[in-house]
Amino acid sequence: MSTFALGTIIALILGSAAVALCLRRLIRSVLLFVISWAGIAAFYLWAGAEFLAFAQVLVYIGAVSMVTLFAVLLTRRHDQPDLVIEPPARSRAAAGVTIGACVAAVLIPAILATEFPAASATAPTFSVRQLGLDLMEQHGVVLLVVGLILTVALLGAVVLAASKEDAS
């Protein structure tokens, strides 16, 4: 019955993502994306990566969704009070879906055809303490680089989004 939970999670993620990309109301789209991110967090929880699940919620639902909503509101036009965006041109939509379908057509048989080595009998456990030690010892350099990238990204975002008027 564990597959039942997994099935629900998968249906939730795929469904909300697919619907989100078809909607015309931008705000609802973004909120559906939030649901699909929450579903991914649920998947992590299901798979036993508890820390990652919470990190996913914190980063995606707590931060990325906020930034996205801000961007949506700041790029609002007065002629679109509902934030309804026009659907894409038919050719473009068709091209996008076709390419997506082609990739799926390649990926799915490939996955099905592959024989993976047997999984370990017991699920791997991974405590927060273990994660911290790994991060600090084996991946210390990477951690520093990520910190640097985040700092640069933050500064870059501030510079990009800062209004020209304020500077003058």
Partner: peptide, 25 residues
């Protein structure tokens, strides 16, 4: 009892602003 209970708490709390945004919007 969770290993990362504090993180769970703040993850759940972080999502509340979405609800307030939804109400306002």
């Amino acid at each position: 009892e969770l290993d990362a209970a504090v993180l769970y708490f703040f993850a759940a709390g972080a999502a509340t602003e979405l609800a307030i945004f939804m109400a306002g919007w």
